[in-house]
Amino acid sequence: MSIISESIQIRWADIDANRHLRHSVYYDYGASMRLKVLSERGLTTHKLEEFMIGPVLFREEAVFRREILFEDQIVLTVELVKASEDFGRWSLRHHFMKNGDTVAAIVNVDGAWIDLKQRKLAKPNDFIKNIFDGFPKAQDFQWVRPEQKA
């Protein structure tokens, strides 16, 4: 599968006192894109409720390279960087591309699945595994053993 990307429309409310994109907005855009991608592939909020499972993050990190201003044209991408073979643990990377060719920021997340009844980590079912298996994999993608943590 080719890389997943979407254009982002910067909102005035996303700009801080320094007149550039507020730091927490990068995380909001990443989360929205991840859930949109899952939903478009069939893992909707209704399915998550049916399975009584949800994604949970262990780490979310932003590396800021260039500031994003209100007028900038932004494209956000997502790719799978690491995963356990059962997709119980995974790492995703987002690139915020500014004006076509400049990496403005990189957001990395490490996650897993939580059983919403037991409130414990859960193994994904085949439906979820198939969706994650279809994610575009980064050039530096690697499979990890559970003890390595994604």
Rank of each mutant, 00 (worst) to 15 (best):
M1C: 08
I4M: 06
I4T: 09
E6R: 15
E6V: 07
S7E: 15
I8G: 04
I8T: 06
I8M: 05
I8E: 04
I8F: 09
R11K: 14
R11I: 00
W12S: 13
A13H: 05
I15M: 13
A17V: 12
A17L: 14
R19A: 14
L21N: 06
L21C: 08
R22N: 15
R22E: 09
R22A: 11
V25C: 04
V25S: 03
V25M: 11
Y26Q: 06
A31F: 12
M33W: 02
M33I: 04
L35S: 07
L35C: 06
K36Q: 10
S39E: 11
R41Y: 08
R41A: 12
T44R: 01
T44Y: 01
H46K: 13
H46F: 07
H46G: 07
K47N: 08
L48R: 07
E50H: 09
F51V: 06
F51Y: 14
I53Y: 02
I53M: 15
G54R: 08
G54D: 06
V56Y: 02
V56L: 13
F58W: 15
R59P: 01
R59K: 15
E61P: 01
E61S: 07
V63L: 11
F64H: 12
R65K: 14
R66E: 13
I68L: 14
I68P: 07
I68V: 15
I68C: 06
L69F: 14
I74C: 06
L76C: 04
L76H: 00
T77L: 04
T77F: 04
V78N: 03
L80H: 00
V81G: 00
V81C: 03
A83K: 01
A83R: 00
A83H: 00
S84F: 00
E85W: 02
E85H: 05
E85L: 04
D86C: 02
D86Q: 05
D86G: 02
F87S: 01
R89D: 00
R89S: 02
W90S: 01
S91L: 00
R93Q: 14
H94F: 14
H95F: 12
H95E: 11
K98F: 06
N99Y: 12
G100Y: 03
D101Y: 10
V103P: 02
A105M: 13
A105L: 07
I106G: 04
N108A: 09
N108G: 06
V109T: 15
G111P: 07
W113Y: 11
W113D: 06
I114L: 15
D115R: 03
K117F: 09
K117I: 12
Q118R: 14
Q118F: 07
R119Q: 14
K120D: 02
L121D: 02
L121H: 03
L121N: 02
A122T: 02
K123E: 10
P124L: 10
D126K: 09
I128P: 08
I128D: 04
I131R: 03
F132D: 02
G134M: 01
P136C: 05
K137P: 01
K137Q: 01
K137L: 07
Q139W: 05
D140T: 14
F141A: 09
Q142I: 10
W143V: 08
V144L: 09
R145A: 13
P146E: 00
Q148E: 15
A150Q: 00
A150W: 00
A150E: 00
